[in-house]
């Protein structure tokens, strides 16, 4: 009898705590941000600063590969307030026009080959011989999943461009044949612990991440590292077909941000984007990821009024 009473009280206490905890949390407005793994560090900082400025807002970030993030909205029916993709073309192709009307391209990055001082042939590797070293049997190297993460298909595009640039026919196939499946991970951030622990000798990574995590890296030639808008035509010479049939052409790396039409908290979402573009510039700079000199707007006709007052944007013709 007594035990029964104690159990019931215990249960009621649990339920009470549950609701209290729920209330404490929901005292703040929630803002859901889906973003790419490579932006984890700078965005954590921005989240902190934003919540300092707006204490009533709770920014809830979900980290995933950009492809996965976009699919969460387009296929799984998930709601979010802000989506930031490591590849603007994903938002353009998959979310416009059903889920998003506009997009702002705001930052770039470049592909590098990251390594540590304990990686094999670490003292030998440079921009001219990296593709030979990767073909050695005792070298473990990888990249992220091309079907879920732009960093992954970009790595493959880099290899295709290398074939053209270094004028070595068949280089792409040779490299792919040397790459082991176990070294492919869902998103770029999962490669970080592998590289740190010595599981991998080399991995394709964004320059910003290599800097953030303190890796050494090989700076690849501009012609192949997908970083310069001037070389867009060159980049376009490489093409990759993904598992679901979409074709990724080589394009310069540009990060895009948007607020979906069905965002639960549109007002604060737009404020967050504003914050990101203005106050965020210095933060990103500190984390080794420079913004575009001027953010570029896609779908400018549909841009909400709040955005129009931003200090600088350049119009772009809609495709």
């Amino acid at each position: 009898m007594l035990r029964g009473i104690i159990t019931t009280i215990g249960i009621l206490v649990c339920l009470l705590l549950f609701f209290i905890a729920g209330c404490v949390d929901s005292a703040r407005e929630k803002l859901y941000v889906f973003h790419a793994g490579s932006l984890a560090q700078p965005l954590a900082e921005i989240e902190k600063l934003f919540e300092e400025k707006y204490p009533d807002i709770d920014v809830l970030r979900e980290v995933s590969g950009s492809y996965e993030a976009v699919k969460k909205i387009s296929e799984l029916g998930r709601y979010c307030d802000v989506i930031i993709s490591a590849d603007y073309s994903l938002i353009e192709q998959l979310l416009v026009p059903n889920f998003c009307d506009w997009q702002i391209k705001f930052a770039t990055n470049s592909m590098v080959l990251a390594y540590t001082k304990t990686s094999k042939y670490a003292d030998l590797i440079n921009a001219n011989n990296w593709f030979e070293i990767l073909q050695k049997d005792d070298v473990e190297w990888g990249h992220s999943n091309p079907n879920a993460d732009p960093c992954g298909y970009r790595a493959l595009l880099v290899m295709k461009l290398a074939e053209i640039h270094y004028k070595i026919p068949g280089l792409y196939d040779k490299l792919v044949s040397k790459r082991r499946i176990k070294n492919i991970r869902e998103k770029e951030t999962e490669l970080v612990p592998l590289l740190k622990s010595g599981e991998l000798d080399y991995t394709f990574l964004y320059r910003s991440m290599a800097l953030q995590y303190g890796f050494k890296f090989v700076d690849l030639p501009y012609e192949i590292d997908l970083s310069r808008a001037e070389y867009a035509d060159r980049y376009a010479m490489a093409e990759l077909k993904l598992k679901d049939g979409t074709v990724q052409k080589g394009i310069p790396i540009v990060y895009g941000v948007s607020v979906p039409n069905n965002a639960p908290n549109k007002r604060m979402a737009l404020e967050f984007v504003r914050f990101l573009l203005i106050e965020g510039a210095t933060v990103f700079e500190r984390f080794g990821q420079p913004f575009l000199k001027k953010p570029i707007v896609y779908g400018q006709g549909k841009l909400p009024d709040e955005m129009k007052s931003l200090p600088f944007y350049k119009e772009e013709r809609e495709k």
């Binding site: 560090q41 951030t189 953030q212 995590y213």
Partner: peptide, 8 residues
């Protein structure tokens, strides 16, 4: 979350 954002 901590693992995937690199802070192992």
């Amino acid at each position: 979350d901590e693992f995937t954002t690199g802070t192992l």
